[in-house]
Amino acid sequence: MKIEISKMLQKKKKQVLDLWMKNQLKDANLREDLMSNDELRVQSEELVDALLKKLTDENLADIESADFENVYEILSGISITRARQGFSPRETGTFVFSLKEALFETLQQELKGDPVALYDVTMKVNKLIDSFGIVTFETFIKGREEVILRQTDEITEISTPVIRVWDGILALPIIGTLDSARTQVVMESLLQEIVNTSSSIAILDISGVPAVDSLVAQHLIKTVSATRLMGAECIISGIRPEIAQTVVHLGIDLSNVITKSSLSSALKHAFSVLQLEVRKKQKENYSLKNM
């Protein structure tokens, strides 16, 4: 007589769970610092529940069965939270694969007398749990990638701070390499800020840009021209001697761009354009008046 493996496993659910927990807990590398044993039990129970509820003898051999959708969802959830909590891939992998041992042990006890059936079901369970493992890894990586993407966005945002140095004067210090994608972000945030503050002068400081090749120079010229189209003036400051050398050696024409060696000289130029003057307070005058 053929035994219904799924029914049998469903009946033995508690045993499977206990065995799985035992396997997990005896592992010396268990991360009790990241997750308490109770939480781990809740997580494990949820997965075993979902799996055994949907398991039939038919879908056991079909890892792509729609019946397992819920299981895959739970697995993905577990995997993503674990990635965020800082579990290593190995730890997350071990979590899933240790379920296999628990299932095998249970099956072995139940099917002692029927090695053929045992072999058959072992192979199927093996395949199923492997597929679970793969899903876990995929979502684990996806979780990590999301973190990386978010950080990339954050870095782009942080790396283009538009500063209002004076009424009508903006400054944008660029730190790091300029590529097309970044220039677009720089250009957009600078131009938008010009509109928001109705500033007539923008200073682009490139002292933090490691190298200026013809492509970067082209990006800079584009930014300057776009600023001009909007009705503001753009000064490029922070031209280090090395940069001046490469620019000339590469034959890049910056003659239509106002360039200054330092941010302070650019600011001075901006002041003179806006007809502003900064000077030291004259104490003598003050004391003369008091006499």
Binding site: Q184, M187, E188, L191, Q192, I194, V195, K222, S225, A226, T227, L229, M230, G231
Partner: peptide
């Protein structure tokens, strides 16, 4: 006067 930033970038 008043050219939008996106328009300026595109024209360039």
């Amino acid at each position: 006067v008043g050219m939008q930033p996106a328009v300026a970038i595109t024209l360039i």
